[in-house]
């Protein structure tokens, strides 16, 4: 939400911009804390013997996807205006990536 004022207009209120940047930085730190938490949970899930791997593997993959979403949308600003085409092409890559991984897990060994 912050930093959508790409007007190039030197008269845009500096204090306003500073405030918006600081607010966004706060969100980034919160994201970071959540990412650490997700990482910890993933390590514990794997360390805890009572979970069968049929649960823990999909679970940690889900945690990874969530963490990557934080990285993309917050750290890399993919949620900001002006990122429509980057998103399109990144998801395009994700699609081909998914097809490749799916193929290698199903039709390489038989």
């Amino acid at each position: 939400m912050a930093n959508q004022t790409n007007t190039g207009n030197p008269n845009v209120d500096l204090a306003y911009r500073r405030k918006k940047n600081a607010e966004e930085m706060k969100h980034q730190v919160i994201s970071f804390v959540l990412m650490i938490a997700l990482t910890l949970v993933a390590f514990f899930a794997v360390g805890y013997d009572q979970f069968s791997h049929w649960f823990s593997v999909p679970f940690i993959l889900l945690l990874a996807v969530v963490q990557v979403a934080f990285q993309l949308y917050y750290f890399m600003h993919m949620s900001h205006k002006g990122h429509e085409l980057p998103s399109l092409f990144l998801y395009g890559g994700v699609l081909v990536a998914f097809l490749t991984v799916w193929a290698f897990m199903t039709v390489v060994w038989w």
């Binding site: 092409f89 890559g93 994700v94 081909v96 990536a97 490749t100 991984v101 193929a103």
Partner: peptide, 14 residues
């Protein structure tokens, strides 16, 4: 980065 995603996916898949 979109292209790198596919590159790493091929490495992961293998």
């Amino acid at each position: 980065l979109g292209g790198e995603t596919v590159l790493f996916a091929s490495l992961f898949a293998t």
